[in-house]
Amino acid sequence: MLVDTGAIQRNFLKLKTLTKGRCAAVVKGDGYGHGMRPSAAALHQAGADLFFCARFEDAATLREDLGVGPNIAVLDGIPQSLLHDAAKLGISPVINSLPQLEAAHDFANSSGERLRGFVHIDTAMNRLGLSAQDLGRARRLIPGIAIQAYMTHFASADDIDLELCRMQVQRLKDACRHLPPAPLSIANSCATYLGNEFHGDIIRPGKSTFGINPLPEGDSPVEQPATVLATVVQVRTVNKGDPVGYSSSWRAPTARRVALVAIGYANGYLRANSSRGQVAIDGQIADVIGRVSMDLIAIDVNELRPDLVHEGTKVEIVGPTISYRRLAQQAGTNEHEAVIALGRGCRRVYVSQASGGYGRSSACGNGW
């Protein structure tokens, strides 16, 4: 996987121009598969001074990498046993429940130090966050917290459900009327493109920073930072009726040229792509045939020029021709899962380019 940190920086700076408030960098999911540490370093260099990650261990790593300057927050909250360490490192919990709030309150009482934190109020997601029923008790505990912001998370901004989004914004504002004043953090990537009424004071565009299209339809307004290329290791001809791959799930309708490519589900190319995925060679599409196996896929290259496909040919898994969205749709999933899987399974190499896009001859390490 070749990752352009320059594209990540440009995406962040573009998103920053869309809001009148502050733009946070969300680097959970190992930077959405692009690598948390190098991505965060690039974002910090681009001016990001507020980072959200999922786990305390990730936050501690970011603090070590980025130094004392930026604010770092943990979206899942921080266990009571680690609050002292968090305070020492200047890491802020996102407080998602009464037990977490009570733990932060007890820490303040025992240490004499108000813990800096974000307070998450659930307004429709029914996942993390204080419920409406929690707010009475929360009002008595929140004064023990140095609140960075109140936040909520949209349930259906991706679906452009404006009615629900407006209801969630109003619910957050209503909940905060009887709480100590603090900024509001509302918009995710999709809501950032819905307009300022959905932004609050701090936007948290995660996926769009990493090139995942925040719009439900049409061209993406952000750049894809990653290209994944794999290597053809064999080209063979199969006869009409011959099976390819495990369980003989695909049989040749006619005599076909087939290329075997060195990537599989061990490298994050999802098994769901079996007989439905597509890849590209020099911008031309080739279908994945048969089962995706651990380290190999087979592709039908019968319609491609013979001189174009040979041992050593580079095959685009995702890049200029195969977008993140196309990669995800052919596997029946979302871009997050598809790209994170590749990021976990492929060796990453980092570059920083002045403008988006890669030449089709670009290769990455041992082929992926």
Rank of each mutant, 00 (worst) to 15 (best):
G356Q: 14
V292G: 01
L304Q: 05
L296V: 01
D65H: 13
A24N: 03
N71D: 07
S131R: 14
L215G: 04
K16N: 03
A60D: 06
S248Q: 14
A266G: 12
N334T: 02
N188Q: 06
Q45P: 00
A138Q: 03
N267M: 11
V292A: 01
R326Q: 10
E316I: 08
A132I: 07
G90Q: 12
S97H: 08
C190W: 10
G319L: 12
L101V: 04
L179F: 11
V235E: 12
H310A: 09
L215V: 01
F107G: 08
S81A: 12
A191K: 09
M125A: 05
A341V: 04
V309F: 06
N273A: 03
I289P: 05
D287F: 04
E163W: 08
S361K: 06
E113V: 08
D49F: 10
P320M: 07
T192L: 04
L229E: 10
L2A: 04
V119H: 06
S323A: 13
A48K: 11
S361D: 11
A255K: 15
D242K: 10
R171P: 14
E303K: 15
A272N: 10
W250N: 02
G35N: 12
I285V: 03
G200T: 00
R257V: 02
G144N: 10
G195Y: 11
D85W: 09
K173A: 07
G112V: 00
D158V: 15
L18D: 05
K240P: 07
R166Q: 14
A146Y: 02
N109P: 01
V233Y: 14
T209N: 03
R37A: 15
Q329K: 11
R236S: 15
R305I: 09
P214R: 03
E163C: 00
L62N: 00
L308R: 13
M167L: 09
L270V: 01
G359F: 06
I203M: 11
L82G: 08
R305Y: 11
T152G: 06
I160R: 15
I212S: 12
H44Q: 06
I72H: 05
R236N: 12
